[in-house]
């Protein structure tokens, strides 16, 4: 199919979708309308369980099973990346050359690494109180670790980031989520039901029953998954060279 014909198909398809979308939007409730039946029910259910952040309550309590599915997507995607980006036979590992970095940038990376790590842990810990949660905090923690690569070079990062441990951490996070779910089952109620722990006093760190624990499990898994993901990408982009055209691999 020639490129021109493909453009025509794209144009007509796009136009048809646009017309259908506009027709559909005309009948949607107005932007900013006051009819939110699910919203009110979710808020009352979350308040009944003393969870201040209703969105975390929806994620880790009312729809905890969907979040388990989402965790498995995350786990599967990281697994796929690890398998895809492994080092093949016709490639060799070249130790990364140390890069010269301006001293102020290095100092900034050294100072910001713990601060970013602390911010990530803060976002994870207060998932069920203030905006934040396991997902966002996990990504912040993982990015904090890579400040070392950004501030110095890949060799320094590899020294303090044993990839094996993070792969185990990724699996442990997923397993912890499942174990908490099964614990609900063993506790006599349903899988992933939030009836196991007392709901605690409202707006404190221990409120919300199993929500903070699921939050922490998701935080650990997302952090470790992103570290493993970036480790694979960094290996491919910085270290692994193809064997035959090694001359071609030198210059950029």
């Amino acid at each position: 199919m020639s490129r021109r014909m493909r453009m025509w198909v794209l144009a007509t398809g796009g136009l048809a979708v646009a017309v259908l979308l506009v027709a559909g939007y005309a009948r949607l409730p107005h932007f900013g309308g006051a009819v939110h039946p699910y919203g009110e029910r979710a808020v009352s259910a979350a308040l009944a369980r003393h969870t201040a952040n209703v969105i975390s309550s929806v994620n880790f309590d009312l729809r905890a099973f969907d979040t388990l599915g989402e965790e498995t997507i995350l786990f599967g995607a990281v697994l796929g990346t690890v398998v895809l980006l492994r080092q093949t036979r016709d490639e060799r590992e070249v130790p990364p050359a140390p890069a010269e970095v301006a001293p102020p940038v290095r100092r900034y990376a050294l100072i910001m690494l713990p601060v970013a790590l602390l911010t990530g842990l803060y976002v994870v810990a207060h998932g069920q109180l203030s905006p934040g949660g396991g997902f966002q905090g996990g990504v912040v923690v993982a990015t904090a670790l890579h400040l070392l690569y950004i501030g110095a070079d890949y060799r320094a990062l590899e020294k303090i980031r044993p990839v094996g441990t993070y792969e185990v951490g990724d699996a442990a996070g997923e397993a912890a989520y499942l174990v908490l779910g099964v614990a609900g089952l063993l506790g006599g109620s349903a899988f992933l039901a939030n009836t196991l722990l007392p709901y605690g006093t409202f707006n404190t760190l221990a409120s919300g029953g199993t929500v903070p624990l699921l939050n922490a499990a998701v935080g650990m898994e997302v952090a470790c998954a992103v570290v493993v993901l970036l480790a694979r990408f960094l290996d491919q982009a910085v270290e692994i060279e193809e064997d035959n055209g090694s001359a071609m691999g030198k210059e950029s």
Binding site: A97, E100, V101, A102, P104
Partner: peptide, 16 residues
């Protein structure tokens, strides 16, 4: 500061 040439070495070498 980094954008204004904070990685002099990285500019030359391809691997860092």
């Amino acid at each position: 500061r980094a954008l204004a040439g904070g990685f002099p070495g990285a500019g030359a070498s391809t691997r860092d």
